Amino acid sequence: MPKFSWHTDPVPAGLAVRQVYGFLFVPDGRLLIRLDGSKHTLPGGRPEPGEVTYSEILRREAMEEVTVDIGEPYYLGYQCVDDGISPYAQVRMAALISRSHPPAPDPDSGRTYRRLLVHPSKAGDLLAWGETGYLQATAAAEAAVAVLGLSADDLPPSGEL
């Protein structure tokens, strides 16, 4: 069974980045969660040939999976996945959603994902990623206030985008 650990420093040289996921916030402070059936996750995915930065990957994945434009992403850290064979990194970023488009099928899967807006404090439970998930959600909520300029006060209730 893989082991997961959360790190806020840069991804070490030589550790492959296999995924980039984003904690995407709307201006009122709610967080976008992607729904795939009953599974809750963040928008994101694998790097494609020619993509050089984590920001490029996240921007593409945000549009493909949940049809939103985002502002400049902020690096939160990475989750190291040690599968016992070849450890790799899953980068996590935070960004503001600048524009929402009507839902459309993901070009990779053909599925149209539902988008749920939640209070950031619910992310750890919904993602069900264990302790590292709670650490990531906390880092994202802190960055939303400190870096993205969102207010932690008077957040509206959850709902669909």
Score class of each variant (00 low, 15 high):
residue 17 V to K: 07
residue 136 Q to Y: 02
residue 131 E to N: 11
residue 40 H to P: 04
residue 107 P to E: 05
residue 119 H to T: 10
residue 33 I to L: 15
residue 113 Y to G: 03
residue 65 E to Q: 12
residue 150 L to Y: 04
residue 75 Y to R: 08
residue 38 S to Q: 13
residue 13 A to N: 14
residue 68 V to Q: 02
residue 59 R to N: 02
residue 73 P to K: 06
residue 14 G to S: 12
residue 132 T to Y: 06
residue 133 G to A: 08
residue 24 L to K: 04
residue 149 G to C: 09
residue 59 R to W: 01
residue 122 K to V: 06
residue 79 Q to V: 13
residue 103 P to F: 01
residue 39 K to Y: 13
residue 106 D to L: 10
residue 159 G to F: 09
residue 93 M to E: 06
residue 133 G to L: 03
residue 130 G to C: 07
residue 70 I to V: 11
residue 5 S to Q: 05
residue 94 A to N: 04
residue 17 V to W: 02
residue 108 D to K: 15
residue 26 V to R: 08
residue 152 A to F: 13
residue 147 V to A: 11
residue 12 P to G: 12
residue 145 V to D: 01
residue 130 G to P: 06
residue 156 P to I: 01
residue 9 D to N: 14
residue 27 P to S: 12
residue 93 M to P: 02
residue 39 K to M: 12
residue 133 G to N: 07
residue 48 E to N: 10
residue 30 R to Q: 01
residue 8 T to H: 11
residue 88 Y to L: 02
residue 11 V to A: 05
residue 89 A to M: 09
residue 31 L to T: 05
residue 6 W to C: 05
residue 153 D to C: 14
residue 1 M to G: 15
residue 68 V to S: 00
residue 35 L to N: 15
residue 22 G to F: 02
residue 133 G to Y: 06
residue 67 T to M: 10
residue 71 G to T: 09
residue 161 L to F: 14
residue 128 A to S: 12
residue 41 T to G: 14
residue 63 M to H: 14
residue 114 R to F: 06
residue 15 L to N: 07
residue 146 A to T: 07
residue 47 P to V: 04
residue 8 T to S: 13
residue 75 Y to N: 06
residue 146 A to Y: 07
residue 56 E to A: 12
residue 159 G to N: 13
residue 110 G to C: 11
residue 71 G to Q: 08
residue 83 D to Q: 11
residue 153 D to P: 08
residue 32 L to R: 03
residue 159 G to K: 11
residue 138 T to V: 13
residue 72 E to G: 10
residue 63 M to R: 15
residue 103 P to R: 05
residue 54 Y to S: 10
residue 85 I to Y: 14
residue 126 L to R: 10
residue 15 L to E: 09
residue 3 K to C: 07
residue 104 A to D: 13
residue 158 S to M: 09
residue 118 V to I: 08
residue 146 A to M: 11
residue 140 A to P: 00
residue 157 P to W: 00
residue 151 S to W: 03
residue 3 K to W: 09
residue 137 A to R: 00
residue 57 I to Y: 02
residue 80 C to M: 11
residue 25 F to R: 01
